[in-house]
Nucleic acid binder design. Structure first.
Lengths: 196, 196
DNA sequence: GTCTATAGTGCGATAGAC
DNA sequence: GTCTATCGCACTATAGAC
């Protein structure tokens, strides 16, 4: 992957910290979430950072390179949550850490993670990405152990879809973050047949 | 709404039946699902039907008009499932019909419904659409009765997100439709605390 | 690292013939 | 209802000065 830690830059509103490269990625993620990948032009990214298109091209040779870098950042966030959960001593605590981490990520980032994960361009990229499948498989293993059958896979996909998809539903946009977080966590637990 | 029943045309592969207008909508839905709204050009729609852009413009004055018509078709499908469930005599059977209908719609249409429901353009449109909120509220009422609190709303959004989001996850694309359908239905029931 | 300027392409949309 | 032809515009991408 990249040179520095790709997870570090969090919701920096364009002009703030980080290298020029990080600023492009952070801004791109923001705009991809709001307008989709195809709906976001290099001009929009450049304008929001406050530079010209050519300056952006100095960091990335093409729009696709930006898309890939942005997708990798999202994947790294996802991987970090899974890795944290895997470090827990017991299986019960691991599952708890996993659910909490995923819900937090979804709620804190608002529609960002979710919309990007459902963008056709990103989905196509992830569908053939080995690392994405690896991370998803590690998540599956945390939840269902060595069971790699269809049922476990559907359930894994459902959990991801539920958590990331719920926060972007129009029906829920005016709710308080804490209410959303608590309810999401409660139902994710029930979903897995856990107490709570 | 439109002149004819917007739910009638189902997965017609472009050249088949229906009026010229219906062919445009069906083709647009297909392409919107695969490439997103912004990623779909009028040229792509015209090419797939086998006509020119100008012929498409004879049916719709703008691309936005096509997007709106396509969104209305999707909403009508959704509404039809809710209406069928509402016609059931008991609440238990209504909920059963609702879940079955939603799962069938998601699995049968593949990624179509799901991707369109998560497209930024369509989401923005639905977020301010009274009819969409009405249908979602009817769904909520079927599931949770008169409880219109935050918890019921989060759960309603979660159910929609779960069913429509799962089928488009890369982790699940190679599974048999029947396996996916059965597992989806089972977990949706557990999700609502129903037996099954 | 950032700028101006521009090439080349494809877009949405319109005019007018058949 | 479909066609050809075209306009004006925004886009990705490149070249070269500072």
């Amino acid at each position: 992957m990249g040179s520095a830690d790709p997870v570090a830059n969090d919701a920096v509103p364009a002009r703030g910290r980080g290298t020029a490269r990080d600023r492009v990625i952070a801004t791109a993620l923001e705009l991809f979430a709001r307008h989709g990948v195809h709906g976001t032009s290099l001009q929009m990214i450049a304008d929001r950072i406050g530079v010209t298109k050519a300056a952006v091209y100095h960091q990335f040779n093409s729009k696709e390179a930006i898309v890939l870098a942005a997708a990798e950042v999202e994947l790294a966030r996802f991987e970090a949550v899974v890795a944290t959960a895997e470090a827990e001593p017991t299986r019960k605590r691991a599952r708890d850490a996993l659910l909490t981490g995923m819900v937090d990520m979804a709620v804190d980032q608002g529609r960002r993670m979710s919309t990007i994960l459902s963008d056709p361009v990103i989905v196509d990229y992830f569908a053939h990405d080995r690392e994405f499948h690896d991370v998803t498989n590690r998540l599956r293993r945390l939840l269902f152990g060595d069971d790699a059958g269809p049922a476990a896979r559907v359930r894994t996909a459902m959990l991801i879809a539920t958590i990331s998809g719920t926060v972007m539903h129009p029906f829920v946009v005016d709710l308080d973050d804490e209410v959303l977080r608590a309810e999401l966590l409660r139902l994710a637990r029930r979903f897995l047949g856990l107490p709570g």
